[in-house]
Design a protein around this nucleic acid. Structure first.
Lengths: 407, 407
DNA sequence: CCATTAATCAACTAAATTGATTTATTGACA
DNA sequence: TGTCAATAAATCAATTTAGTTGATTAATGG
């Protein structure tokens, strides 16, 4: 069977690829002068000059920074990403609340709306999104509105397993419905995968190109980043760390989740909106931390054996202190476990907390349109199931440029 | 931190990439006519025509096949990989025996030499390789000798943990020594990773672009293939399935390995050279199979949760019947385990058996020089020794390779 | 004999490269 | 302190590579 077919390279694809590469380098390293870009990409100074001129003209890069002098020769003019270069919508559907955000090119949240509920219903959420987007767009100038690239949805998979009142989700295509209603390209991914993508794209810490990510919320999930790209997997179920098998015939989400903590506690926990503490009884807190750390360390160690990852990030929708304690406890457990032949990874807390999912949702169109490494010619399996994208491969770059950069 | 930097596009890089892509498609699908290649790559017929003309002139493709008629229009002229297009050396270092093979472009073993021993010693193996290569080269014509692309070494990591007589391996850089002595580029990877690469490159079954691979020999190991490429990991320790943690505080290799079977049996097992049976007592065979299947299924399920893999391949240096029984037992275990939220992968036996490691070693230079997807910026040892077009677009490949392996 | 498909020839285009030139700064020396 | 050489960034102009498009030739089935 064919397996995948890596893209053939053409001059058109080349320009797009090199543009993305340059923007990605600036995103990672902060503002960079053209000379440094030439160095980093291996391209000639002339090529970088041409590409950056176009990107500046397109409003994606900003050359207004301070010239940096101090060394011999002409001073450096660092190029920065322009925050208004592109805007993205993110919709997060959670167990208790939905969030709709407008995010800029640098990951800044420009607007935010929330919809609390007892349990999520597809029709209500569709309505919330449509009205919310209209309101958000209403507050934008025409020129900014034109820079909206699309919407991403972060939502748990297998929603219908939460109970019979979730039945309406089965077979429901929220993505297609919103794409239709909004007239915008819409992406949809697992919420934990989105959180992982947000950490990679907007997170504060300098992250390596490969890492594993856990996101502990009402349920537990995760994501994997390989070669600097979020890996979704052939059936978009990669990073399903909640389903990871652990000793005792259980899975991670049977132990390490806020819903389990609530069950132990016997009452629902408040959303950590203001990051205030949950005031858990010490013994109960300890018990949950111990058990959770045990399963997380087991899963992390397994993933590292398979993928040789130098870093594991743990984040979640919980108070920072609790999350940090979980990280510490997991690190301890991991070091104590038998790990012959494995280099223990660094363990680190995420930097985005409960915002991660909505930010990651908004990052989906960004990833698709502005990141190097294949998206420009790769099929988009999730985009919609029955797409007949057997049109001439050549027209892809074109079509995508239109939706992507809006030039 | 920078993370990885995907390659920038350059005209030269493009041609190299597209050449590799075409050869890879033919390797996967068998002989293909130019029209089908144009279709599959998305390139124009003209581009395919130009590229294939060069590849035929370089001796890598063969246009001598039968024209296929039967449809309206001009008959198809399928292009095949030329077996003598490139030759590779593979050196496998095992617990009991070393093997040196000469492999052709299609994975055919042209020559083979073996060195049995009680335990492997670096100096003796170095000597065996140097003399063996000299002898092998002596039997080749000049024109074939010029097509030798390099050597790959398949060797277990952490050899020194096998016992105190293995101490000389610590810090020993077999790769550098042989590269020096042979004047050829030499690669070195974990033996199980090599076996996995061989299955991907030369295996009989049509494999998907992503799969997990176990190789059960004296010890247990494995590999991961993602997007059609063997994943080695940042510190080249990916696919370390032997070190995968399983319930009971153990790792896979504590249970599922031939050395454990020998320990249970109380005597060493013969090499399954002729694939004859090992005549194990039924109860003991059953016990080993049960325990091994338990840990393999646990590890496979975890890897699938992380990576969303549609296939798991199990192979090993053991009689086919035993391997097949292991596959069946593992599949049964996996289906019985709790796997909520995970799509069970297909389970399948490998097709190369004990040859896999040596073949995979030889596949290392092939992978580096002839596969699409990133290696293109590295020099191509195969084409011809003193080619001038190798003005380094970037010396990155070089440097990276040199630091390659001491670990 | 004609419609159809494979493959090539010839002309054109996109995006890179190389080499020369302009610009702005540091640092040395009168 | 003023002038100038050295240095490095960035651009201009010309060239090269590898792709595309459109016309042409070749071989086959109906």
């Amino acid at each position: 069977m064919p397996g995948i077919t890596p893209p053939a390279w053409t001059p058109q694809g080349a320009r797009s690829q090199n543009e993305r590469l340059i923007m990605w380098l600036i995103r990672r390293n902060g503002p960079m002068p053209r000379a440094a870009l030439a160095q980093a990409t291996g391209l000639s100074a002339q090529a970088v000059s041409n590409i950056t001129r176009e990107l500046i003209a397109a409003g994606l890069l900003d050359a207004e920074g301070e010239r940096r002098r101090g060394k011999v020769g002409q001073p450096l003019l660092p190029l920065a990403l322009k925050p208004e270069g592109a805007l993205f919508l993110g919709l997060k559907v959670g167990r208790r609340v939905a969030e709709l955000v407008l995010v800029d090119f640098l990951g800044g949240i420009r607007q935010m709306r929330t919809l609390p509920y007892d349990f999520p219903q597809p029709d209500r959420i569709h309505e919330f999104a449509v009205q919310g987007v209209a309101a958000i767009l209403g507050e934008l100038t025409d020129s900014l509105r034109a820079r909206l690239s699309g919407m991403g949805i972060a939502i748990p998979f297998y929603l219908w397993d939460w109970g019979h009142e979730m039945a309406p989700w089965r077979g429901r295509d929220l993505r297609a419905g919103l794409e239709q209603a909004l007239g915008l390209p819409v992406w949809l991914e697992n919420d934990a995968s989105c959180a992982c993508g947000a950490e990679m794209m907007f997170g504060a810490g300098g992250l390596p190109a490969d890492f594993l990510y856990f996101y502990i919320a009402h349920f537990a999930g995760g994501g994997v980043v390989l070669d600097g790209r979020l890996r979704l997997g052939p059936s978009r179920n990669a990073g399903a760390m909640g389903s990871y098998p652990v000793p005792g015939g259980q899975q991670v989400l049977d132990v390490a989740s806020v819903s389990v903590l609530e069950a132990m506690l016997g009452r629902p926990l408040p959303l950590p909106l203001e990051d205030r503490q949950w005031q858990l009884p010490a013994a109960l807190r300890r018990e949950w931390l111990d058990k959770s750390a045990a399963v997380l360390s087991h899963a992390a160690l397994g993933a590292v054996a398979v993928l040789d990852l130098p870093l594991v990030v743990i984040d979640g929708a919980m108070p920072d202190a609790l999350r940090d304690a979980l990280v510490a406890a997991t690190a301890e457990r991991m070091a104590a476990a038998r790990h012959h032949g494995i280099t223990l990874p660094e363990l680190r807390a995420g930097t985005l907390g409960r915002r991660a999912r909505a930010l990651g949702a908004a990052a989906l169109p960004l990833d698709e349109g502005f990141l190097p490494g294949g998206a420009f010619s790769a099929p988009r399996p999730g985009r919609n199931g029955n797409e007949t994208r057997e049109t001439p491969p050549r027209s892809r770059g074109q079509a995508e440029r239109k939706t992507g950069h809006g030039r």
